[in-house]
Amino acid sequence: MTAETIGMPAQRLRRSLGTQQFYWLLIAPALVLMLSFYFYPLAKVLWISVTEPKPGLANYALLFTSESVQRTLLTTTRLCVIATAITMLLGYVIAYAMVHAGERQLRWLTFCVLLPLWISVLVRAFAWVTLLRSNGLINQGLQGLGLIGEPLTLVRNELGVAIGMVHYMIPFAVLPLYANMRTIDLRLVAAARGLGAGPFAAFRRVFLPLSLPGIVGAGILIFIFSIGFYVTPAILGGGRVLMVAEYIGVQILNVLRWGLGAMLATTLLVSVLLLMAALARVVNLRRLFGSG
């Protein structure tokens, strides 16, 4: 498009052909690696889901007949919806504060949001177990203060899993929400105030609608991340709260039911891709991921 626009037509053609091939050559190593060691194995999962233990859609029928499969899917959906809703609310508050913060405060808020994002998911899950278990720091603290007699059950149940998930996801909500809110012209809110709207009315009728694309985009993104969660629910659920990813793991590693595991993995994959397609309609995906 650029260098080739100058020069004689024939020369240009030859050069552009060579150049094209050269650039495809640059793409080739990564592409070949990804095709053979990422996309081919994924295709294998789809294949297993319709061929093992015997060819056909018998595995998919389990979605409608197996009680344990349905229970797992229900638990997963419930936890994901709850965790996404709470995450969005808390993330919105932080992002809202960030757009209204001075430079210094903004730097600290950004740092504190990014920090947990960078800490190993295992470390975070471990820290939550330390805090939440029955002889953990929170229960000891509350008992020490005489506020409770019996320790509260904060972990190895859905509450613990939800806490861990929300904690993990908040940074992922804040970043796109903040990116969207930064594009909102704050003078519009000031204008609404100047025209007599109260602080809450100005927020609800001007700022909130303008931030809606960010809310929808971040919400879908969070939901996508949460339905595939493995480590956090496994550790904080302590085997009692089985979300779909861990359930698949159990099928493969413990009971060796490949057909069922692959079917659920395929279902998970399809759900994620459908949600991505929905997300792509709302926001520019590449911008969301920070490139371009």
Binding site: Y40, P41, K44, V45, G228, Y230, G249, A265, T266
Partner: peptide, 15 residues
């Protein structure tokens, strides 16, 4: 980045 690791893990394990 968006496809859950668990899905990929099954495939790469088999391969």
């Amino acid at each position: 980045i968006v496809i859950p690791s668990i899905v990929y893990s099954l495939g790469i394990y088999r391969l």
